[in-house]
Write a protein that binds this DNA or RNA. Structure first.
Lengths: 217, 217
DNA sequence: TCCTGTGAACCGCTTCACAGCT
DNA sequence: AGCTGTGAAGCGGTTCACAGGA
């Protein structure tokens, strides 16, 4: 059937992967790509790819595959990547600094337009071509700079307070690196990246591998 | 029933969350905690908490709740966090540097014991109390330093080659920040953190919110 | 013949609802 | 009375298998 308005969450999370593979393919001068090849390069099942893409509409050609350039445009449109998005970072520690300079953001159309910290010694200092501002100015600057996505890299204890201000300022997209569970009203999207948690999960599988080794040989 | 040997993947991914909440509770001198409160603080459903914890064994007391300290020990044991884990970082860019100094790792018992880069200008330079080593030494140092978890923060094009060496060196736990899909043999655990992908996912929901606003008012 | 698009089966996980213990 | 532990139902997502168009 045709394009549907509600795309499953799991599909949305994979579209950026497909996009990355397809953009590489453009660089390799590929004109079409089968669901099979796209699946291998994205590390998923081919039926998965076809079902995911069917949610955007029938953009493939039977017997041939998908038009690479056309599909890139469609995914970009679906993800709302057709115009640059303005990003702010709250919390200018090592991680915040690294993220502010991360090339992967700029390459994907995300422009960091403001940075904030609560530490008076950091406020006013430079970071790249930005000046670090006081969190007290958070609300006004977010509005004035038309920020649509905010990256939170504060200490855990400060994160919820910051997020409350962000929500009050109308921000609906938050990427949180603080190791704490955020409470937000419906309609606000939060993506949580917890580096400690990732290592702890790996630790579990590492331990399983050790145990298996002991048992198996 | 009693403790089971195979814990569902989804449960494993939540155990670190529970651990964080419970450790906070220890700091607040709490002795027991109900699944209801633990659920609220971890941002999940109470039945979820009970089912998850039932995979570790019957550690709760009906009518009372879970013994906080005891549960902390059990989760730590399950996740294999009872001893420190030795970590290496490959790729000393801004992100690699930030991660090397990240306090959240040390606080959770992950010790960064080696760092590598391919750039001769970085090799030999200091990073914290470490000296950056050449990726050519990757295999030997991994073995000599008994590294069990490796964080990959190289450019995308280099990541697969690095991972092939890691796997050959016997590493079975990898945390990958390079924006590329890694191919690894069975038995090797990879956690993928892609910052660009996270923002692209948020972009989708941000767009949905804008559209809803247009429609709704 | 090749490869997409999709109903249907399947699977793992989540949530409900309540029996059972304290 | 309160809260855990868990069968059973419900749900979203994945994979299969194949009809159908190029």
């Amino acid at each position: 059937m045709g394009p549907v308005r509600r795309i499953p969450e799991a599909t949305v999370a994979r579209l950026p992967l497909y996009l990355r593979v397809l953009e590489d393919a453009v660089g390799q001068r590929m004109v079409t790509m089968s669901s099979e090849l796209l699946a291998v390069r994205a590390g998923v099942n081919a039926a998965q790819v076809r079902k995911d893409l069917s949610h955007l509409g029938s953009y493939g050609t039977r017997g041939v595959g998908y038009d690479v350039q056309y599909l890139v445009r469609q995914i970009n449109r679906q993800l709302g990547l057709t115009e640059d998005r303005r990003v702010a970072i709250v919390g200018v520690g090592n991680l915040g600094r690294a993220l502010a300079g991360y090339q992967g953001f700029a390459a994907r159309g995300f422009r960091v337009v403001a940075a904030f910290d609560a530490d008076p010694r950091k406020v006013g200092s430079g970071m790249g071509d930005l000046v670090v501002r006081d969190v007290a100015e958070l609300r006004s600057v977010i509005v004035a700079e038309r920020v649509s996505v905010v990256i939170v890299t504060t200490p855990a204890v400060a994160a919820q307070d910051v997020v409350d201000v962000l929500v009050a300022a109308g921000v609906t997209s938050i990427l949180n690196f603080a190791p704490t569970t955020l409470v937000v009203p419906p309609g606000v999207a939060v993506r949580q990246v917890d580096l400690g948690v990732e290592l702890q999960i790996l630790s579990y599988y590492e331990q399983q591998a050790s145990l298996a080794e002991l048992r198996g040989g």
